[in-house]
Design a protein around this nucleic acid. Structure first.
Lengths: 221, 221
DNA sequence: AATATATGTGAAAAATTTGTGAAATCTGTG
DNA sequence: CACAGATTTCACAAATTTTTCACATATATT
């Protein structure tokens, strides 16, 4: 779990960092909105803790900018009395507010709550469409140009896993572990054979299954 | 969608109200259990968000009182550390707990989940028809081409569960858990035998019961 | 260009999964 | 306690899937 702490006061950053690291989070810091945007775009944080009032770029604007590229959950810090428009924050996808002076324990509780939510709520929808390729995970069906593809169990499992992790590079080992299970001790190349069958089942939409030479595969939408 | 917010702290009510209204809910407020009971009995809310610790009448007692007349779903708010007996809450039909301090977004996520749950439960009508196959869940009867099918209890349970979840892939484990109960520790294949009997009972309409190789079954309408 | 490495693919062997009939077990009832 | 019906387990055949392997093809490295 990686956490970005954004505040212009080094003291606040220090307190939050100490608590977070005690809880086992990896932390990174930024002293203003500009720096936050750069770091947030360059790294994959699991959550961002950000002050609203900062030099150079305020928290809301920074969040707006980050949102253009990433969907990282954000908890905003605001000083008591600062009457910020919460609705505006909600539109930006702010996940929570904590009012200064805050108790570090409360902040940590909220961080945990947000992280937990992200885990369960970040599911891919059950039905997806890529051009003429329809994917119904709930119904365990795939349609190629309206015609039902008849796939084998492993094909479905493999395909749904690829789709759920679309645009993410997956090694053969990762696929074996996630689709076959941790207790599979067979050959790497088994994956290749299943990719082959899957590609045949997908017909013209085999193009979505991309080979990453020296690595593995990915579903690229 | 109408929502009743019950808490003695005006601040909490305000935050919840703002978020809820942004999401398009109509809101109403009550500052204690007494007021909550009166409002809940007089109006038809879709969901009630209620604090446990309140003056005059606590959340549990209020819920109990409301339950005498209405079945409105309730999400309880409890302060961290308040060790209330969750089982007692579930007896009263509490739908969820949120521990303070909560993130408003998390609360909204849970509200949505509870509302959705209510919808889907009410969504399957008691009587359905698939070609010459009539399904009367309320009356616990099934007609095949007008003729009453004589099924065993488990057949009815299994069939109605499949129909309620039509077009959704169901594993044997899921079926065992939902139809047989979480405390069934028997063989997976028991499901197969019942599917076999069910198919025989359905005659020509056995076609609706689809085998999902490597997975389980589904009712495909 | 030659060599090494990685991936695509067809076919056969090995393993798994499902349908089904029948036997065993359980349950409620008179 | 015996009975009938319901439920569960079991075993085996049939169908299907998975895996492995060998070789062809493609890509990278020296």
């Amino acid at each position: 779990m990686k956490l970005l702490i954004v505040d212009d006061e080094a003291n606040i950053r220090r307190v939050v960092r100490e608590y977070a690291e005690f809880e086992g989070y990896e932390t990174d810091e930024a002293a203003d909105g500009m720096e936050a945007v750069n770091k947030a775009k360059a790294n994959d944080y699991d959550i961002i803790i950000m002050d609203i009032m900062m030099p150079r770029l305020d928290g809301f604007s920074a969040c707006k900018e980050i949102r253009k590229q990433k969907d990282t959950p954000v908890i905003m810090l605001s000083a008591r009395g600062e009457e910020y428009d919460k609705l505006f924050g909600f539109e930006l996808g702010i996940d929570d507010y904590v009012v200064k002076p805050f108790s570090p324990k409360e902040l940590m509780a909220r961080i945990k709550a947000v992280c937990k939510r992200g885990e369960s709520a970040q599911q891919t929808p059950a039905r997806l469409r890529f051009e003429g390729l329809e994917v119904d995970m709930a119904g365990r069906e795939v349609y190629v140009n309206g015609e039902k593809a008849n796939m084998t169990p492993k094909e479905y499992d493999l395909f749904f896993y690829l789709v759920k992790n679309q645009n993410i590079a997956l090694t053969r080992d990762k696929l074996l572990e996630e689709v076959w299970g941790y207790d599979f001790f067979g050959d790497d190349r088994t994956v290749d054979t299943h990719i082959k069958m899957l590609r045949n089942s997908l017909g013209e939409y085999r193009k979505f299954i991309v080979t990453l030479r020296g690595m593995g595969y990915k579903f690229e939408a």
